[in-house]
Structure formats: structure tokens, C-alpha cells
């Protein structure tokens, strides 16, 4: 069992259910590049430090926007997709935040509509859970800051003249 695997499933199911969408956890890995994908992440800092990240196929993100804003598919722009993915990231991140060591703070979500694969230095991936939803896929991963990888992980203020 991976780190908070059950909770990731529970919170993702909850987030999707608010839009009347059913998701199924799957053992198939999310394949980047096969379809247009979108990446998103939200950070938690404080007593627990790390990143919750999500990769989601564009068609599914579009479906989220349709449901969330009660609009037609043809009315969906990048703004609605960005907002819909941000909101889902916020719900999953916010729920995970509440079960991690306190106090901790949640950042604002960050979404990349081009799906640029992001790496999070000084962290290790602790969980990876993939889901299927109406023929599309998405996955949620948790990356925790690892103390021994934080070599020179300081940001001393450098004097300016």
C-alpha cells in the first residue's frame, strides 16, 4: 500500500462525484504523450512538505469544465479548463492537507495546459494512483520533500551593492 493511497482514491472520487462523474482506480499507468495532457500541482508546506500533482487528459479536463460551469462543450475555453483543473487540484490537495501533520499550508494550484512534465527536486514520489473516467485517464501523485536530498537547500540573501 502506498502513502495515503486509499485517501487519494477517496478524495478523488469525492471531487469527481461533485460533478456527477464516476471514476475507477486502475492499475494502468498514465501514458504521457498519447493524448494531449494537462499537468497541475499544489504544494503543502509546514510540518509536512511536499507536492500533490495531477496529470489529466485534455478531453477529461474539458468534460470537468462542461460540468462545473454548466456550459456546452463548444463554449469551453482555456480559462474554464484551467479553473476546473485548479478546483479539482484544490479539493484533492485540501483534503490531503487536513490529514497531514499540522500546522501546514496549502499553496495556490498551478496548472500547465501544455502538459509540460514537471519534476520536483528535493522530493521523492510516495504515491501514484491512476484513474479512468468515461474512457479518459488521470493520475494523482504525492511527492514528499526528503531531508537528505536538500543539500545546500538554503536561500541566503545575497547582498546587492
Amino acid at each position: 500500500m502506498q502513502f495515503f493511497e486509499n485517501e487519494i482514491k477517496e478524495y478523488a472520487e469525492f471531487a469527481w462525484s461533485t460533478l456527477d462523474l464516476k471514476i475507477i482506480p486502475t492499475s494502468e499507468q498514465f501514458h504521457e504523450g498519447t493524448k494531449n495532457s494537462i499537468t497541475a500541482n499544489i504544494q503543502i508546506s509546514g510540518q509536512w512538505q511536499g507536492v500533490i500533482a495531477m496529470k489529466i487528459e485534455h478531453d477529461l479536463a474539458q468534460q470537468l469544465a462542461v460540468k462545473m460551469f454548466s456550459i456546452e462543450e463548444k463554449q469551453v475555453t482555456e480559462t474554464e479548463i484551467n479553473d476546473a483543473v485548479s478546483e479539482m487540484m484544490n479539493i484533492i490537495g485540501g483534503n490531503l492537507k487536513s490529514i497531514l501533520p499540522q500546522p501546514n499550508q496549502l499553496s495556490l494550484p498551478m496548472v500547465d495546459l501544455k502538459g509540460t512534465p514537471l519534476h520536483f527536486p528535493f522530493t521523492e514520489q510516495r504515491s501514484q494512483v491512476a484513474f479512468a473516467c468515461a474512457g479518459n485517464a488521470f493520475e494523482v501523485t504525492i511527492h514528499q520533500v526528503v531531508a537528505d536530498k536538500k543539500t545546500n537547500f538554503q536561500h541566503p540573501v545575497v547582498e546587492t551593492s
Binding site: N41, S45, V51, H119, F122
Partner: peptide, 8 residues
């Protein structure tokens, strides 16, 4: 507040 860095 400063977030963690992300690299692509």
C-alpha cells in the same frame, strides 16, 4: 511565502 521549485 516561497513554494518548492518545479523543474521541466
Amino acid at each position: 511565502f516561497l513554494s518548492l521549485p518545479a523543474v521541466a
